[in-house]
Design a protein around this nucleic acid. Structure first.
Length: 327
DNA sequence: CTGCCGCA
DNA sequence: TGCGGCAGG
């Protein structure tokens, strides 16, 4: 059921950070922040992020500690944020609410059926909204550090994948496997962890299974995605086999006598997501370190001890890559 | 969270 | 082949 079914279809390889030097990575900001927050801050029982004490700005610590990883390897991150409701048309807002309700319904279902904790937490990360404070302060810090930010019209990972497809960036950075369904040519996982990153190759995956993009999405829908539970008894092997034999999702469903509610819409979320071609960013990073430090330690009163090392690493790495350009 | 094992 | 359970990192 989980996304790990997709993993077994994906063509993955190890890369070294050296291979990534000079590249631009569109990072799914929500995914990235969520990762830091869940390891440093615990959710409260009702699912909301805590907003008391120092926890409300744990994201600032996460950002300061996480950025050096990119800079030290001469990788330019572009943080892609999920869109707000601000400029949405009425029907788009309604559509969002619907989608949100779908997520929540599915989360409830998963909890009640005693689904594994991994799945529950995946679904939670979908319904969970980063608080306004977290969004706002992350943007505030990134802007002082001059790190490029893109505002997605809807899903950040869809926008990031789109930018990779357009060649605006070299990679998408996300732990999620859905970037494969979104057609992201190359996705980097484990950018934040200790070891080497893992590269997920879209075209190689299609070739490996002799599927078109549409067919891969159809197989995904049969196995289950973040938007639908999938069909019992259908895993990676069966899904691919069915789609190949019957051409597409509809053929496969017919053959099995199954039905998936809203299947065409789920498909579209991957094949034709709401994204923009106008996302523009400046990859040259020229941070204002004083402003960044002041913002974090004075304005938001984060203990300097928590972030000083990170700031130093940022400074050192930018000097280093600066030198590299002259050699 | 991933990987491996054994049961259906 | 799918899946649930369990161990190891």
């Amino acid at each position: 059921m989980g996304n790990s079914d997709l993993r077994s279809l994906a063509v993955l390889s190890e890369v070294s950070f050296d291979d990534l030097a000079g590249s631009v990575v569109a990072v799914d900001a929500h995914n990235w922040l969520y990762r830091y927050l869940t390891t440093t801050v615990k959710f409260t029982r009702d699912g909301a992020y805590t907003t008391t004490g120092g926890e409300e700005v744990a994201n600032l610590i996460g950002v300061v500690q996480g950025l050096p990883k990119f800079f030290e390897h001469d990788i330019t991150p572009v943080f892609v944020f999920d869109g707000g409701v601000t400029d949405l048309k009425d029907d788009e807002i309604a559509e969002r609410r619907e989608q949100r309700e779908r997520y929540e319904a599915e989360l409830e279902e998963a909890k009640e059926s005693g689904a594994d904790s991994a799945r529950v937490s995946t679904l939670q990360s979908r319904t969970q909204r980063l608080t306004d404070t977290i969004q706002e302060t992350t943007r505030g810090l990134l802007s002082r550090l001059d790190v490029p930010v893109v505002e997605a019209p809807a899903e950040g990972e869809a926008q990031a994948s789109h930018m990779a497809r357009q060649g605006q960036v070299d990679y998408v950075g996300s732990e999620d496997y859905d970037t494969l369904l979104l057609g992201a040519p190359y996705t980097l996982r484990q950018l934040t962890s200790k070891g080497d990153p893992e590269l997920m190759d879209f075209e190689a995956t299609l070739a490996e299974h002799d599927l078109t993009w549409e067919q891969l999405v159809d197989a995904g829908v049969l196995m289950g995605t973040d938007f639908n539970p999938g069909i019992d008894g259908i895993g990676p092997k069966t899904a691919v086999k069915l789609v190949r034999e019957h051409g597409d999702l509809w053929g496969a469903l017919d053959a099995r006598g199954e039905h998936i509610e809203g299947a065409d819409r789920i498909r579209d979320l991957f094949l034709h997501p709401n994204v923009t071609d106008d996302a523009d960013f400046d990859p040259d990073i020229d941070p204002d370190m004083d402003a960044a430090r002041a913002y974090v330690t004075e304005e938001w009163e984060v203990d300097p001890e928590e972030v000083e090392r990170g700031f130093e690493r940022i400074e050192e790495s930018l000097v280093q890559t600066g030198l590299d350009r002259w050699t």
